[in-house]
Write a protein that binds this DNA or RNA. Structure first.
Lengths: 306, 306
DNA sequence: GCCCAGGCTAAAGCTTTTCTTTAGTACCGC
DNA sequence: GCGGTACTAAAGAAAAGCTTTAGCCTGGGC
C-alpha cells in the first residue's frame, strides 16, 4: 500500500518551491527535517530524486515521470483540506472582553506566534462567536472564580487610583485631605459586579479623604476608553493594574496615591477551553502558553501590590 | 500546511472499501490502528466523518464535500508511486544458487511471508539479475567464507553418502568392505572447488573401503538433479545435508554409512546484502529472518554431524 | 582570492506518532 | 440465546519524525 506520504509531500513541495528551505518554511519544520524526509525516500528507492544544482533544486529524471501525478495529488489534497476546514486545527478562536484582548492579549500574542508560526488567531468580543464549525475554542471572562476543571484562573486584579504623570505631580503638591478636590473623577463600570472592587465613594471613605460629590463624573464601560481619558489628563480613575502593566511600567500612567491604597478584586479573569478542543496539540500549546504568561502577570501584580 | 496525511489515507480507503477492517488489510495494519487514525482526524476537526451504520461505513455529510478530492488525490498518489516504483521497497530480489533457492529457501519463505505479508520475492539464479532498478538486493553464494561486514555466513555443509532407503538396506546386508561394489556412484560437482569436500575416490580411500573404478559414474551439476536420481534408486551420491534436511527428516533419503563418515566443507553458503539496501525496514527484517533460519539449520547440522 | 551568507547534510538525542495487544461492546444471523 | 465479526478504548512498546549542533559547499560581493 501507499507509504512515504510525508516524504512525497516534502519532495513535491521542495520541487515546487525550489528549495528545501522554502519547503521547510511551508511545512513549519526545519530544513534538516525536510532533507531527511527526501533522503529517506531516495534511500528506500535506491535512486536520486533531486538534482542539487546551481540554481536550486530540480527534479531528477526518475522523479520527472511521477511529478505531474504528485502535483495533482497534493493540489487535490489541499482542496480536500479546504473543504474539510482542516486548517481549522491551526486556528485558535478566542472570545474575550475587548479590554483584555486589546490591552493584555494582543500585545503578548507575538510571543506565542513567534514560537508557533502557522497559528492564526481569531479574537472576538465575549459572546461574539462567528458562525463557524462549533463554538469558540477558548473563552475568557472576568467573574467569580469557577473551579470546574475546564476553567483556569488567570489572575485577579488590583484596583487603585490611576492618573497621568502630570496630574500625579499636581496632586502631590496639595495638602493630603484636599488632594481630590479640583480633579475630575472618572468612573469605570468594568468591576461593578465585584463586591471587593472599590468605586470612588467607598475608596474615598476608606482612605479618609475629602471630596464633594464623589459619585459624580463620567462613567466608562471599558478600561481602554477610561485609560485614554486619563492619558489625556481628563481626570483620575480607579482601575485594575493587570491589563495596563505596560503603560504603568513605561510611566505613561501613574499612581497618584500609595500602592497600599489599592484592593484586590474577588472576581478574576479566567479562561475556559472546550473539553474536546485540547485534543489539538496547537490548542494545548496555547493553553500552556497562556497559563505561563498569566503567572508572570500575577507575579508582577504581587510586586506592585506589595 | 497539509497535515494528517495518514488519517486522510485511512479515511479514503475505509470509505472506498466499506469497512475499517478492509482498509486495515489494504494498509497492512490492524483495524484498531485504522480506527485510531480516523478518530484522531474527527477529534481534530470536532466533527464526525463517518456514519457507522448497519451496512458498513458511509461518509458523513461533512466528509462528502471533500470525498471526490480525496479519491482523486490518492489515485494520483498511487499513479506516482507506480511511476516511482515505490512498491519496489516491498520487493526483495534474491540471487541464489538454484539448489539453495529450490531446496532450502523456497520451502521456508512461507514462514517469512506469513509474518510479513505484502512482501513479494523475486528469486533468480546466481548472476541472473533482471534488468530493473539497480542490482539484486541479496546475493547468496557458496564459496570461501568472506569476512567483509556485508557478508553473513549462513552455514557450512556436512558432506557424506546419501542413498534411497532401499539401497541403504541392500548395502547393510553386504559385508563391510564390499558394500560399494555393485552400486552406481553418482558424482556431484557442486562442492568440487572446496578442498575439504570429499569426492568418491578420496572418501573411499579415507574409509578404507573397496571399490573398483571409483571415479566412474554419472556427474551432476546440481544437487536437485542428483537427489532425484538417488530417490529413483539410481545409485549413491556424496552430498551435503544442509539443503536436504527435509528429505532426510522424513526418510525419503537415507544415510547408508555412519554419520561420522562425513566431512564439513570449508566453503560456506553466505549472503551479501547491498550496503544501502538495509535502509529499507523490510530488507532488515528479511536479513534478520534469514540469519535466524540459518542458525536453526546450523543447529540441525551439528546434531546430524555428532 | 578571500570572506561571508545561505543552503544543505550527517549524526545524535529527544519527542511525538503510530502501531499492537488486550479487553470489551455492539450488531447480525442462525 | 449464542457465536462470529467488526469496532472501540486504553495502555504500552516500537517506530517515525523532528530539533539541534556542527560542518561542508557554493555563490556573490568586495
Amino acid at each position: 500500500m501507499l507509504s512515504h506520504l510525508k516524504s512525497l509531500q516534502a519532495l513535491e513541495l521542495a520541487v515546487r518551491l525550489g528549495s528545501l528551505k522554502q519547503a521547510a518554511d511551508a511545512l513549519s519544520i526545519t530544513p534538516a527535517a525536510v532533507g531527511q524526509r527526501v533522503k529517506a525516500l531516495e534511500d528506500y528507492l535506491g535512486l536520486d530524486l533531486l538534482e542539487r544544482g546551481r540554481s536550486g533544486l530540480r527534479p531528477s529524471q526518475s522523479l520527472s515521470v511521477a511529478l505531474a501525478h504528485l502535483n495533482t495529488a497534493f493540489r487535490e489534497l489541499d482542496a480536500a483540506a479546504t473543504a474539510l476546514d482542516l486548517q481549522r486545527g491551526h486556528e485558535i478562536h478566542v472570545a474575550a472582553p475587548s479590554d483584555f484582548a486589546e490591552l493584555w492579549l494582543a500585545p503578548r500574542l507575538g510571543r506565542f506566534t513567534a514560537l508557533h508560526p502557522n497559528t492564526r488567531f481569531s479574537i472576538n468580543g465575549e459572546g461574539d462567536a462567528p458562525i463557524r464549525i462549533g463554538p469558540v475554542d477558548c473563552e475568557i471572562s472576568f467573574g467569580p472564580p469557577r473551579d470546574e476543571p475546564e476553567y483556569d484562573i488567570l489572575f485577579r486584579d488590583y484596583v487603585l487610583p490611576i492618573s497621568s504623570p502630570e496630574n500625579t505631580r499636581r496632586i502631590a503638591a496639595l495638602g493630603r485631605r484636599e488632594r481630590l478636590e479640583g480633579f475630575p473623577l472618572l468612573h469605570l463600570d468594568f468591576y461593578r459586579n465585584d463586591p471587593a472592587a472599590p468605586a470612588w465613594p467607598a475608596w474615598i471613605k476608606a482612605q479618609k479623604l475629602k471630596r464633594t460629590a464623589p459619585e459624580r463624573g463620567i462613567r466608562f464601560q471599558r478600561i481602554t476608553m477610561v485609560v485614554e481619558a486619563v492619558l489625556a489628563d481628563a481626570g483620575l480613575t480607579l482601575c485594575g493594574l493587570a491589563l495596563i502593566s505596560a503603560l504603568v511600567e513605561d510611566k505613561r500612567l501613574s499612581l497618584p496615591f500609595p500602592k497600599s491604597t489599592g484592593a484586590w478584586t474577588s472576581h478574576a479573569f479566567q479562561s475556559r477551553f472546550r473539553k474536546d478542543t485540547l485534543a489539538r496539540p496547537q490548542m494545548r500549546r496555547f493553553r500552556d502558553w497562556l497559563v505561563a504568561e498569566c503567572a508572570e502577570t500575577r507575579l508582577w501584580l504581587s510586586r506592585m501590590a506589595g
